[in-house]
Design a protein around this nucleic acid. Structure first.
Lengths: 136, 136
DNA sequence: GGGTGTCGGTCTCAAAAAGAGACCAGCACT
DNA sequence: AGTGCTGGTCTCTTTTTGAGACCGACACCC
């Protein structure tokens, strides 16, 4: 199927889905997106899409995340079913995090946005620069 | 191009792009994604992808956004080059917001994630329910 | 046996962000 | 003169995030 057709066909439907047909407070699409909106969610998902990692490995891999937010974000991702957490009875015990099937499926969709960002970050930077100088 | 091939080919590259090759603090991909991570960014982009809206129309369309966050989010989206803001000299003056070409391009990528959320929100809900009952 | 290190966290406190809602100027209409 | 609409801003409170100290359990070294 041609992707342009997909875009044109579903634009309105997506918007309707996000507004929940009048039931905004309980809209499932916004609810799901909300869980991915966190500052660290996409980065950690991208890391785990590459390969499973242990807690400490993730911490070293993303040095500017606090241990507190790493714990919390992984917990949320696990709760939403994207991430599997497995404890190995080593001494001291080690904990491995990996993507579930649902997580891999979700990352397949997220990936488009990440790729777009990679391709277009210079355009965004440019826009910001122009806007900021226009303001001053 | 087959989308499966795209996934397999770029998984590692995307992660590398997000970690910025060691230059995490200044990573452009994370920088761009960050601007889309706000609570209201994707919803407002989806609304404007449907059609241009005026400030008050958006406020009525999304009743649970505060006026403060609506102003602020639109300002950020404008700064990043996704949204065009036009003031019409009516009395009282009206302000119309619309997507730029860059904004439409970005929405094309974002759309995949929104569609995924629409298709899979029941799986996520299910995962949450299971997790919460397992915790208790 | 005492000191040190690793593991995956939790706890507390300060800073930043978001939400709620009052307030504003300018003009039209009545 | 009073009311309403426009698109905001200002202030205050609550929530979220960040920084960093602390924790138990065990291994390893001496």
């Amino acid at each position: 199927m041609d992707s342009t057709v997909v875009n044109l066909k579903s634009k309105l439907e997506i918007y309707k889905a996000m507004t929940g047909g009048g039931n905004l407070a309980d809209c499932p699409v916004r609810d799901v997106i909300q869980g991915l909106n966190g500052k660290w969610s996409s980065l950690l998902t991208a890391a785990l899409a590459e390969q499973p990692y242990r807690f400490g490995e993730l911490r070293r891999l993303v040095p500017d995340i606090s241990q507190r937010m790493l714990t919390q974000t992984l917990h949320e991702l696990q709760r939403d079913g994207y991430v599997h957490r497995e404890v190995f009875p080593t001494k001291p015990p080690s904990v491995e995090y990996s993507l579930t099937d649902l997580g891999r499926s979700m990352f397949g969709a997220l990936q488009h946005l990440l790729q777009w960002a990679e391709l277009n970050h210079d355009a965004v930077r440019e826009a910001r620069k122009g806007f900021d100088t226009a303001q001053a």
